[in-house]
Design a protein around this nucleic acid. Structure first.
Lengths: 104, 104
DNA sequence: TGACTAATTGGTAAAGTTATCAAATAGTAA
DNA sequence: TTACTATTTGATAACTTTACCAATTAGTCA
């Protein structure tokens, strides 16, 4: 039962990079080609490609080939539900920082 | 608007370790002292202490001192909602592996 | 065939994460 | 004060992740 925690942790790790979060958001609206995704996240293609491979390996995205193009899509849409909670944590942190700032 | 993605990514990073997931689960039922948490996750105290500090820094846990003891509690309970979705991803991955196994 | 485009992969250096053990802090109580 | 307990912190070595540029694969089409 130790292994199950490592598997779960891998999913979070897959989401623990700003570029990968942008990718997930970008394809959440619908399937997108790599070129589009590269524009969407504004990073180097080879870099984006590795992040895509990682998200796919984690089971969060799946891909489909069509001619020269490869299209990625969100395999598990429920990950989008994380974001409102994550924003809540971020907000709490920022408010905490603001309160600390007041005391200086 | 780039920074917001890094802040979000930090939350996921904080949850991307098996010990830290166990800690979150352990305190999700209610506030717990470090000693209890150490038993709960079955790891070295100094190691657990660092993971606790990291979760606190991320804004996921908060702490409270009482005499010699320090009690940690889940600051943002909505993170528990992640787990059913994460389990879904894990399950999909395991099923995929099982299907691959059949083909060998 | 060769030229072209889309995407991935190899190599690598810099940066970040983790576990471990020893040492330090801080609170309590004799 | 000393002794004791709970917890954190310092130092460090092994390991992992990342971005970058160059090279490669794979598909299309003239």
């Amino acid at each position: 039962m130790e292994k199950i925690y490592s598997l779960r942790a891998e999913i979070f790790k897959a989401l623990s990079h700003p570029i990968r979060l942008k990718i997930v958001e970008c394809v959440s609206i619908g399937e997108k080609g790599v070129g589009e995704i590269v524009k969407c996240v504004n990073a180097e293609a080879s870099n984006v490609s590795r992040h895509l491979a990682l998200l796919k390996k984690a089971g969060i995205l799946s891909d489909r080939k069509e001619g020269l193009n490869i299209y990625y899509r969100l395999e598990i849409p429920c990950v989008m539900d994380f974001f409102s909670c994550v924003n809540k944590v971020v907000k709490t942190r920022l408010e905490l920082n603001r309160d600390l700032l007041k005391k200086i």
